[in-house]
Design a protein around this nucleic acid. Structure first.
Length: 422
RNA sequence: GGAAGAGUGGCAGAGUGGUCGAAUGCACUGAUCUCGAACAUCAGCAGGGGUGAAAGCUCCUCGUGGGUUCAAAUCCCACCUCUUCCGCCA
């Protein structure tokens, strides 16, 4: 959500931003509704002011006739006021509906483009492995080594179900612990946050009402969140933070649930796209400064790159184009890891910043040195998502005999073994 | 699942129909005192909106949303959250 004053004063910027994001938004319709809102507001307030003034008189008037006359006159004002307030409610409904559709402004450095095809690769790391044999998919590799079970996963859990077992389970634990250690060393506080959240929590973080389709809902009208960001951002909602505590760096672990409603037929096998997965998410709340947001965004991206580098996974970084940005995002980098069986990079991490777009709705503020309350800035980036990242770890490190070389960084977490399958 | 109670400013806590945006204390800020600090004394100190160049004027907010009333923190209804007790369970 943006500030209506800012919107009114920067109509052209908003228009240009929406164009760049390829979001169809009629700003003039919003301005028209806002004009109505202001007009009605003034009229309502004038009546209330009258009501307050006369109420004051009623208290002090001793003459009973005079008093009754005042009360009668207020009865008329009251009726008119009730009618106008009803009109105001209607206006506000429309106003709010439009306000949550206003896209945040993309950064200058965001490239033009309509779809993910126009995202711009800005750097590569690592050498794509060449195999003198036909590389197997993680599905075959894991089945052969008894690290996973997909048939029984589907039997138990349904479509896209999976079970990690033995070294597959241990590898997952190792990845979590490794990433947690690295980010704690960079000042992130580890947290385990709920996936089962209230509707208000999702509305506050902007995943509802738009994202209803992709969320699981319980019979108590709670939801299963698709990312730990939801609970983590809401953690400080309606609070005033201390400036000296900023930036708050959180590393949130949570199970994540996605219905994948729009992805039927995509990635139907294996661990790439599943309904239930786990994520360690970096979330930052910082002072309200564009410069700080930019610096922290680069830092978040670097953190994740370092993790992939230590895991020895070839990846590239994409600068996301306007049309592929979310409503609130100012700028986003996606990291994609190499998947040999597909001969392609697949998205594993995503780093964005929002300025105060999220925190305005969540009402997270701090008192700045000038004494004013300001909305904090928010940023987030995946630290690691499992089991998807296991795909790249396993496939890139496979050997001709079907064994898997364990990346050095993970060995301390796996009893200093060098291989799976030996 | 059953029963009872509670939600007021950054925090604690008073306030049961009009003089209440709200006593008091703590915290915080400034001044005085001091070589400096602590102590003490004095003063200031909720958030948001409208209008205005500004000073100012004005509206809203006592968990949330409705209602009663000329008038609601205060009365009524619904919902949310928390606490305590009983039951059940890990």
């Amino acid at each position: 959500m943006l500030d209506i004053k800012f919107i009114r004063e920067n109509k052209d910027l908003i228009k240009e931003g929406a164009r760049k994001k390829h979001i169809d938004f009629d700003i003039d319709a919003l301005i028209t509704v806002d004009d109505k809102r202001r007009e009605k507001l003034q009229s309502v307030e004038a009546k209330k002011a009258e009501q307050n003034t006369v109420s004051e008189q009623i208290i002090h008037v001793t003459d009973q006739d005079e008093r009754q006359k005042l009360i009668d006159s207020m009865r008329i004002v009251k009726e008119a006021l009730q009618k106008e307030e009803e009109e105001m409610r209607e206006i506000m409904k429309e106003w709010q509906r439009l306000m949550v559709l206003v896209p945040n402004l993309p950064d200058m450095s965001v490239p033009e483009g309509a779809t993910d095809k126009e995202n711009v690769p800005i750097r590569n790391w690592g050498n794509i492995p060449t195999f003198d044999f036909t590389p197997k998919s993680h599905i075959d590799l894991m089945l052969n080594l008894n690290m996973a079970d997909f048939d029984r996963g589907a039997k138990v859990s349904g479509f896209r179900g999976y079970i990690l077992k033995n070294d597959g389970a241990l590898l997952n634990f190792a990845v979590w612990q490794f990433v947690t250690d690295r980010l704690m060393a960079k000042g992130f506080s580890p947290m385990i946050v709920p996936s089962l959240v209230r509707k208000e929590t999702l509305v506050g973080s902007g995943y509802l009402p738009q994202g209803e389709e992709d969320l699981y809902k319980t019979q108590d009208n709670d939801y299963l969140a698709g990312t730990g960001e939801v609970a983590t951002m809401s953690y400080y909602s309606d609070e005033i933070l201390k400036k000296e505590d900023l930036p708050l760096k959180m590393l949130a672990f949570s199970p994540c649930f996605r219905r994948e409603a729009g992805s039927h037929g995509k990635d139907t096998k294996g661990l790439i796209r599943v309904h239930e997965f786990f994520k360690l998410e970096q979330v930052i709340l910082s002072e309200a400064s564009h410069q700080t947001s930019v610096e922290l965004h680069e830092m978040l991206t670097k953190n994740t790159e370092e993790i992939l580098q230590e895991l020895e996974i070839p990846y590239h970084v994409l600068l996301i184009c306007g049309g592929d940005l979310g409503l609130g995002q100012v700028k986003k980098y996606d990291l994609e890891a190499w998947v040999p069986s597909e001969g392609a990079y697949r998205e594993t991490q995503s780093a964005s910043y929002f300025h105060d777009f999220q925190t305005r709705r969540l009402n997270i503020r701090y008192r700045d040195t000038d004494g004013k309350l300001k909305f904090v800035h928010s940023l987030n980036n995946t630290a690691i998502a499992t089991p998807r990242i296991l795909v790249s770890i396993i496939e890139n490190n496979q050997n001709i005999d079907g064994t898997i070389t364990i990346p050095k960084a993970l060995r301390p977490y796996l009893g200093n073994r060098e291989f799976f399958g030996k």
